[in-house]
Design a protein around this nucleic acid. Structure first.
Lengths: 143, 143
DNA sequence: TACAACTTGATTGTGCACAATTTAATTGCT
DNA sequence: AGCAATTAAATTGTGCACAATCAAGTTGTA
């Protein structure tokens, strides 16, 4: 009984936290014209580029049903460029445009803002990340 | 540097955990014909009923743009019934149908399955819940 | 009482997420 | 070499989430 209530509270807490985070990023990134998932894609690109859609999917654990339209929107916004790989015509390679690369500067303040807005200490954040990581792993492997 | 990387890791961890949880619930609830958000609504109804759309929104922190179509789907599935309140015609009251009430039995095993699948100890879950709750609160209040 | 302000819910539009299917290209096997 | 199996993306369909807007009902107040 206690356990069952707790289950619902924990699951709801994860769900609610995810939405609250999403909402904060929405306000934070509005000026850049990015959504949170788009920001995640840009983070990967700012780190290593070019990158295939497949690689983006592995890094962010998203499939092409999510990435294809998202990348189309980033392309329409002039931030990335897509082209089929010359060496393997099945793959699509994603590159930053000049504007996409420049956006990195404007985005550089975002992490500290978010970090501050969580109201958590560094040690708590590290703990949180570790626990959530284990849970995600376990849930993914569970039948 | 370290902090900024941690920000992205923590935020991604929350996001990924939420999706992993959602995926597990999807498999777990498929037999009942419910999605996770629909299950949350049913939990509220199984606990106290009837309930207005407004009250559901406060409990789950969802607005009518999300709840209206969701409740329509639950109604189409024959699990709930909606009608305008007699005392205040602005409100819509949601009730369980017989089938909706009976579904509670079939759903009673879900919490323990999920709890087991997280792979976390009770104390860790309690911790997790507390930390996420504080973070959600802080993010909601942040500008 | 009459009207303005507010409340409740529905609608519209945008975007994320995922399952299932489709198409095209590549690889492996005989 | 030729064909089956595999792989990469895109597409289609369903559902959640939220912002913005709208319609209808209620409340407060002049």
């Amino acid at each position: 009984m206690n356990a069952l209530l707790l289950e619902n509270q924990v699951c709801f807490a994860v769900h609610a936290a995810s939405r609250a985070l999403d909402g904060f990023y929405r306000r934070e990134l509005a000026g850049l014209g990015l959504t949170y998932p788009q920001y995640l894609v840009m983070l990967v690109l700012w780190e290593r580029e070019p990158v295939t859609v497949k690689e983006l999917g592995v890094a962010l654990r998203l499939d092409s049903g999510t990435l294809s339209p998202l990348l189309k929107r980033l392309e329409a916004a002039g931030l990335v460029q897509r082209e089929r790989s010359a060496s393997d015509e099945r793959s699509v390679v994603v590159r930053l445009t000049g504007a996409g690369a420049e956006l990195r500067q404007s985005a550089s303040r975002v992490p500290e803002h978010v970090l501050g807005a969580t109201g958590l200490r560094m040690s708590e954040l590290a703990d949180l990340q570790r626990t959530l990581g284990r849970m995600t792993q376990a849930l993914t492997e569970a039948t």
